[in-house]
Design a protein around this nucleic acid. Structure first.
Lengths: 168, 168
DNA sequence: TCCGAGGTGTAATATTATGACATGGCGCCT
DNA sequence: AGGCGCCATGTCATAATATTACACCTCGGA
């Protein structure tokens, strides 16, 4: 995917009422990852990803297990296994601030620094890459001799939708 | 606690990566907060804070409960209550990436944006405020109309000590 | 054909966090 | 002094999140 090296940030499309993710796109990315690793993109993995994509919002692992349960009960551990695969594939991220998981729109290149903006009203998550943030982080790391490997950047706040029209 | 006779030719052992913080300073900050709120700085709160300060590293709540237990068993819920107070006082932070808690060196003003750098080798945490990161975050938020309230910024990586001489 | 890697289904357990409730101290008011 | 409100405590219970263990299955090579 093309970068904007000139811009300090790349905004997420501000579609106010988009709550779902492009399921096909994310699914083919997962499939591509599976193929590249010689691993199967199994039914369980597809089901978890499809559910998250359709939801468009973060879900707890047990919540996923519940939704996927029909005649047969889906156990949490099965969901965690699928989530692990999907996270490695870059199709799903974990929100550390609330121990939940969500499907991710876009491909994150190499060491791209992504900010998750989590709305405390409606729960929606937006992602945005920011070169400025990335440089800032490299900066503080450098001054302390710290070698950063994996950044976790989450903003809790209120999304545009909820600011303009307060919830229920 | 553990004291090793110096055996390494370089004179450094695992504890070298430990950065205990100024217990008196952090305690007086907690006390000041308590006074300002008209709340007591109780024995339990002091014990939890003192333990975290002495440790200098993040601890899980149950680990704290364990260490504080003597004849009487300290229950996790008591620790969580103390931690809640100490977090409000700004003396303790929670590491979302690992659900652990650590005592904090310095006073964070108003909306200061602080980065936690967590060493995956030795577990130590360093803090640094970055204006550049803060501006980057405001930037991405602005482009999406997101109103940021509380940022969580954690860098997992390797601290200077561990880069130069790995623990164990 | 056999073997091995990886997945599944199931049970059990570990870890993290909160809810509910009775009790006790302490300041404050009358 | 007596009563009241507020807050913290101690204790039990439970919710929510996450992992370990193990037997079995299935596919694709050697």
């Amino acid at each position: 995917m093309a970068h904007d090296p000139d811009q300090s940030s790349r905004g997420v499309h501000a579609d106010a009422h988009r709550h779902a993710i492009d399921a096909d796109a994310v699914q083919s990315r997962a499939r591509a990852y599976a193929t590249s690793k010689g691993l199967p993109f199994t039914a369980m993995r597809q089901r978890v990803l499809a559910l998250l994509a359709a939801s468009g919002k973060p879900m707890a692992a047990y919540e996923i297990a519940e939704k996927l349960s029909d005649a047969r009960r889906v156990q949490a551990v099965q969901v965690y296994r699928a989530l692990e695969f999907l996270q490695e594939a870059g199709c799903v991220h974990r929100l550390a601030s609330q121990s939940s998981y969500f499907a991710c729109d876009h491909l994150h290149g190499n060491g791209e620094t992504v900010v998750f903006m989590v709305c405390s009203q409606c729960g929606a998550v937006q992602e945005a890459a920011s070169d400025l943030v990335a440089r800032g982080l490299r900066g503080v790391a450098k001054t302390t001799g710290f070698k950063p490997l994996h950044p976790i950047i989450e903003l809790e706040g209120e999304c545009a939708d909820c600011t303009s029209e307060p919830v229920r």
